[in-house]
Design a protein around this nucleic acid. Structure first.
Length: 472
RNA sequence: GCCGCCAUCGUCUAGUGGCUUAGGACAUCGGAUUCUCAUUCCGAAAAUCACGGGUUCAAAUCCCGUUGGCGGUACCA
């Protein structure tokens, strides 16, 4: 059978890492088989919280991550007619009914049940209203909803979860669920079933927060006279401290933030994959194509894993180092739209490739190459320790050594003459080179010295030594 | 409260009854390379397999219970 999966985000917030995670699995499952299809469906029936902006953010983010869909995006709000037709059909078949209970009544009911340590289930008060009674209440203008009539004696609803084992629920604990609001907008569980049925979805793979929705949805499929799809529920990603599902509490969860921070889409995908699935050979670095090739739903985790920023950073570093210099240059240029000298990024790339974990690390590491350094006397003093009184002399010696050197400066001569100078001045080589480093950059950590100086040029380098010298 | 899901180093995991003195990865610590920082390489520390009972000649692995974490219990999705 041809596989058809779907991802159904609700546009009630920006693209969340959890949503990206939720998109990965149905996407991979669809791409796995030949001719599989992946559908994007926007579940926008929560009118209070859904916005067009969130939807755009989600769609753009999914595209940035590399996801493509074969159908959609569909919108549930465009499909109200269908939900209404199905609802009418269920009513006419006596599988659903009108309910006129007020919010207060229902709350009272639940409260009483809680006090009696009973499961909180709708009493079915409006279940047996006659047609006449219904008409009369409607005429009076009493607000109503449509409830699903839970088949009596349905007993235990059971299904084979592709990730868990057999999952069983007692349908008696479900009660008669509301499926349609008075305003004609359906409720989540009902709309999902109508859509999955209408769109002929074969596999539903989603977070395990939906496990308890599944028996309800199966019951709806049964009422429709349809076979439910196969279900697979993966665990939710937990916060770094394992307290609760991934939320803003312990760090950013917005995909856009990660993009702005300089994470590569492919490393995000790789890390997300690691959180839900284990490569059969235990590999940790693999691209989406390999994931699709090796994917088997049986290798998905059944226990929840916690978000780990350090591991993501490591993976991102791995991917940066795997890029060619040309490719990394392009990525940096796209990333650093406001950079003062984007055309000068290319020659710097080989120097920083092994030194950055995120694209944003480029800036602090290289800004001295593109603008004047800011000096702090203490940093110089820390290098030479108790010889700090001699700093002016050290700096002018450095300057004259540079001026004496034959041009263009060569790495070999440079290294040799400064090792000699270090010895002459009673400094060790580390101190010598650190002093030069700080002089040209204002920092104690930079890319390799001689290559940096080459990029700066001889004149600029000597100028910086002069400026530094004037500090003392 | 009721219903459900889950439970191996700090974190992610391997492990499907004997091959396990529980293996790997990230992070941590030490060492080598080195002009700094990284990279790379080598090494160390880190899990009484949540707890308590069973089953078995043998259990991290099977069963039951407990505890803990998480989720659901809406005219949210």
């Amino acid at each position: 059978m041809r596989v058809k999966t779907r991802m159904a985000p609700s546009p009630t917030g920006n693209l969340h890492l959890g949503t990206a995670f939720a998109t990965l699995w149905p996407f991979v499952l669809a791409k796995k088989g030949s001719g599989g299809e992946f559908v994007l469906r926007i579940e926008d029936t929560d009118r209070g919280r859904s916005t067009k902006e969130y939807e755009e953010n989600i769609i753009n983010g999914l595209k940035w991550l590399g996801f493509e869909w074969d159908e959609g995006p569909f919108h549930q709000m465009d499909r109200l007619k269908l939900y209404q037709e199905v609802t009418d059909k269920l009513i006419s078949e006596d599988k659903a009914y009108f309910c006129f209970c007020t919010k207060e009544e229902l709350e009272q009911e639940r409260e009483n049940q809680a006090k009696a340590h009973l499961p909180q289930v709708y009493s079915g008060k409006c279940r047996n209203l006659t047609i006449k009674e219904v008409e009369a209440k409607k005429k009076e203008g009493i607000p109503f909803v449509v409830r699903f009539k839970l088949p009596e004696d349905r007993g235990v609803v059971e299904y084979e979860d592709l990730i868990h084992h057999t999952v069983k629920f007692d349908s008696a604990l479900l009660g008669d669920m509301v499926i349609m609001r008075q305003n004609g907008i359906p409720l989540y569980n009902f709309a999902v079933v109508v859509d999955d049925w209408d769109m002929k979805i074969t596999q539903v793979i989603r977070g395990d927060d939906h496990i308890s929705n599944t028996p309800k949805q199966i019951l709806f499929f049964e009422a429709l006279g349809a076979t439910p799809p196969q279900y697979a529920h993966y665990p939710m990603i937990l916060n770094q401290d394992r307290q609760g599902k991934l939320s803003k509490r312990t760090g950013s969860t917005s995909v856009e933030e990660y993009k702005k921070d300089g994470y590569l889409p492919e490393s995000l995908i790789n890390y997300l994959a690691l959180l839900g699935w284990t490569h059969p050979e235990g590999k940790e670095i693999f691209d989406i194509a390999e994931l699709i090739e090796k994917f088997d739903i049986k290798d998905m985790n059944s226990s929840a894993s916690a978000w780990n920023q350090q591991k993501l950073d490591w993976i991102n570093g791995e991917y940066i180092r795997k890029l060619s210099d040309e490719e990394l240059t392009e990525r940096l240029q796209d990333f650093l739209v406001d950079h003062p000298a984007r055309e000068k990024i290319a020659p710097v790339v080989p120097l920083i490739k092994e030194r950055i974990k995120k694209l944003s690390d480029f800036i602090p590491l290289t800004d001295f190459l593109f603008g004047k350094p800011e000096y702090e006397k203490v940093i110089f003093e820390q290098v030479v320790g108790d010889k700090k009184a001699q700093l002016p002399m050290f700096l002018s010696e450095i300057k004259s050594t540079l001026e004496k050197a034959s041009r263009p400066w060569s790495a070999q001569d440079f290294e040799r003459s400064f090792r000699e100078l270090a010895e002459k001045l009673g400094l060790n080589t580390t101190q010598m080179f650190q002093l030069i480093r700080i002089t040209i950059s204002g920092k104690s950590v930079t890319p390799p010295l001689f290559e940096s100086i080459q990029l700066l040029g001889e004149e600029e380098t000597i100028k910086r030594v002069e400026i530094a010298n004037n500090l003392f």
